[in-house]
């Protein structure tokens, strides 16, 4: 079985993003870029499945400009067997990402796709579910535990009311939640080895996909800030203040 892992290049999660004063977006110049953290978790899970002997190959796939090769090399250094970059300079909406990944899945004969549950830039959280719909296959979003036996995956997912376990027939799409695993660190020799691993570059036209963007971003603004309130010195003062505000009786 081949596993596809989606890789998105995003602003590193440690960077505090700033909105440009003219409202045209967030400032990305000179900002550190990384693999979307949920995608790293997805990749780690794929590697573990392969290491258990339940997958033959892990293919990391990204869509974006040439710069994204850096993140694909990181994915290779983590342990992916090969990478595919679908070159595209335009911004791509989640549905178009799903359509593109589906084209790769069909071309590669993928048996399991593991994606991050959301990207930490647009926070859309749509691609995995859309891919599963278009592929007409099962989806398990927000996974915190994955077990595979024969052609069935038993997956535990984090839902608002607790932990839900589903059983799905493969092929399927799984999206990773935060607690699925802790991704491994990349060691220096792995980086050297990754340089020799195959990274294929293709494009949307070759895959037969044409983008169909639907939404227009009119404006980007900073969120309204809460202002600093008052400080109280002890418990009686705190209780008095809360009673005054009517939040405690």
């Amino acid at each position: 079985m081949k596993i596809l892992v989606g890789v998105k290049r995003v602003v590193d999660y440690n960077v505090r993003v700033r909105v440009k004063p003219d409202g045209s977006g967030v400032a990305l110049e000179g900002v550190k870029m990384s693999i979307n953290p949920f995608d790293e978790i997805a990749l780690e899970e794929a590697l573990r499945i392969r290491e258990r002997g339940q997958a033959s190959e892990v293919v990391a796939v990204a869509i974006g400009p040439d710069d994204v090769q850096a993140q694909l090399r990181s994915a290779l250094a983590m342990g992916a067997d090969r990478a595919i970059l679908v070159k595209c300079d335009a911004a791509v909406e989640p549905r178009d990402v799903a359509r593109t990944l589906l084209a790769v899945i069909r071309q590669e004969g993928i048996g399991l796709a593991i994606l991050g549950k959301q990207a930490i830039d647009d926070d859309a959280g749509q691609t995995g579910q859309m891919l599963a719909a278009l592929w007409e296959r099962p989806q398990v979003s927000f996974a915190s535990k994955v077990e595979i036996k024969d052609a069935v995956a038993t997956v535990t997912r984090e839902v608002d009311s607790g932990l839900e376990t589903l059983e799905v027939d493969l092929p399927a799409v799984i999206t990773s939640d935060l607690r699925l695993n802790e991704p491994r660190y990349i060691k220096l020799p792995d980086i050297m080895k990754a340089k020799k691993k195959p990274l294929a570059v293709t494009d949307l036209a070759t895959l037969g996909v044409s983008l169909a963007p639907q939404f227009k971003v009119l404006k980007t603004e900073a969120p309204p800030q809460r202002s600093r309130g008052i400080m109280v010195k002890d418990v009686p003062e705190l209780i008095a203040e809360l009673k005054k505000r009517g939040v405690l009786s």
């Binding site: 602003v11 993003v17 967030v26 930490i120 830039d121 971003v217 980007t220 900073a222 969120p223």
Partner: peptide
């Protein structure tokens, strides 16, 4: 977007 650090229209 960006964990609520920006709001888009």
């Amino acid at each position: 977007i960006y964990a609520g650090n920006a709001i888009i229209t």
